[in-house]
């Protein structure tokens, strides 16, 4: 009991002791890098529609996302993405680029443990939860719509 009190006190003390870092620079960076990536996506989308008028809007979006996924994956392989990410934070994590990076980075990382149990198995250590939670929640939505 006494220990618990001591721990709570210590945690509060540590929390207060942590130097307040200025959040504004990182918030600003995440804003403009994130905005830029989205603008790049819009540009891709518009160009696809312009050059290939036969493509449907839905497919144009799919192509756009695939292009962004490719770029993020490629930059990850070159070892550039983690530097951009360290600078922009959520600015690169929240767009689809973050999803792509979260699959490519463990693939690179665990290559040494073999292709099957290293690369292929560990590819989803971060993206796995995203796919699982997205799929399950969308299935729940589908279930609801079945009865509505």
């Amino acid at each position: 009991m006494q220990e618990q009190e001591r721990n709570i006190r210590y945690n509060a003390y540590v929390e207060a002791k942590i130097a307040k870092t200025h959040a504004w620079p990182s918030l600003f960076n995440s804003f403009w890098v994130g905005g830029l990536i989205c603008t790049l996506g819009q540009l891709c989308n518009d160009l696809i529609l312009l050059w290939f008028p036969s493509v449907s809007t839905q497919s144009a979006w799919a192509y756009t996302l695939i292009i962004l996924i490719f770029l993020a994956s490629f930059l990850t392989g070159l070892g550039v993405f983690d530097k951009i990410g360290a600078f922009a934070g959520a600015g690169t994590i929240v767009p689809i680029t973050g999803f792509s990076n979260s699959i490519t980075s463990p693939a690179l990382e665990f290559k040494n443990e073999g292709i099957i149990f290293g690369m292929c198995a560990k590819m989803f250590i971060i993206a796995g939860p995203v796919i699982v939670s997205g799929t399950v929640s969308s299935m729940i939505v589908g279930l609801i719509y079945l009865f509505v």
Binding site: T76, D82, I84, A86, A88, N101
Partner: peptide
């Protein structure tokens, strides 16, 4: 880093502490 934290190429920020 790879044992305790995240893949090296993951684009995340290191917490200030």
């Amino acid at each position: 880093e790879r044992q305790f934290r995240f893949p090296l190429e993951l684009g995340n920020q290191r917490p200030p502490t």
